[in-house]
Design a protein around this nucleic acid. Structure first.
Length: 220
DNA sequence: GCGTAGATCGTCT
DNA sequence: GACGATCTACGCT
């Protein structure tokens, strides 16, 4: 059971022809991690399973800055079998297992060997799906059927999982400290969480669902 | 809305 | 042997 592929939720079925989605170039994922974390608000995570497309629009992310970031699994260059996918080139998937029951998915950023990543914290399913279905990193993985067997997968190689640019309306982006990293000392206050201020699917306590500075627009 | 407790096991020390 | 990049249920305000 533990190493089996997990089936995506039927409610995430969508028609890719109805959206304007296109691949990111590899160079995008080799860029600045914070900028990528912000840019991915509005992007689509897609999974092709048995010939059908499942997917969701990302509404919340967090940046993890590698060796210098005490909240990151790659802090101080830690390199173990679990974390190994973080050291791949930008655009790969890093999935880890926490609390004995949940998975969390990250997109690796920066060039190979840097071990930066962006945690996918929440997403909105296609029109009409319950806002809580993908609200939180573990729920997002559960709904899309992401497990450890997909850790290390290249999201840009026409694989069954892909991250796609969506040319939709620009979101109002809120910023806050990251969630669930009380152990991280100074780094716990770094403003590395980004979210769509108008999405009902954003996770976390209510006070972290509005920008800390109301009305502030974040530019790319 | 808020805070707390318990679940449950892979991973690293 | 300790501890999670979490979630749910439950009780209180």
């Amino acid at each position: 059971m533990r190493f089996e592929q997990s089936i995506p939720d039927r409610r995430l079925l969508f028609d890719p022809e109805e959206l304007t989605l296109r691949e990111y170039p590899r160079s995008f994922f080799r860029g600045d991690t914070v900028r990528i974390a912000r840019s991915l608000i509005g992007a689509w995570f897609a999974r092709i399973y048995k010939g059908q497309w499942y997917g969701a629009r990302i509404v919340e992310t967090e940046a993890y800055l590698g060796a210098q970031d005490s909240a990151a699994h790659s802090y101080r260059g830690r390199r173990t079998p679990r974390v190994e996918p973080m050291y791949k080139d930008g655009g790969h998937l890093y999935v880890f297992f926490v609390y004995g029951m949940h998975y969390c998915a990250n997109v690796v950023t920066r060039p190979q060997g840097t071990a930066h990543a962006v945690l996918l914290r929440a997403a909105e399913g296609p029109q009409g799906t319950p806002p809580r279905l993908l609200s939180g990193p573990a729920r997002l993985c559960a709904a899309l059927g992401i497990t450890r067997i997909s850790s290390g997968l290249d999201l840009l190689a026409g694989n069954e999982m892909r991250l796609l640019f969506s040319s939709g309306p620009k979101a109002r982006i809120g910023t806050s400290a990251r969630i669930g990293i009380d152990y991280a000392g100074e780094a716990k206050n770094w403003p590395l969480r980004f979210f769509d201020e108008d999405s009902p699917a954003v996770s976390g306590p209510a006070r972290l669902r509005k920008s800390e500075i109301p009305g502030l627009m974040q530019e790319l």
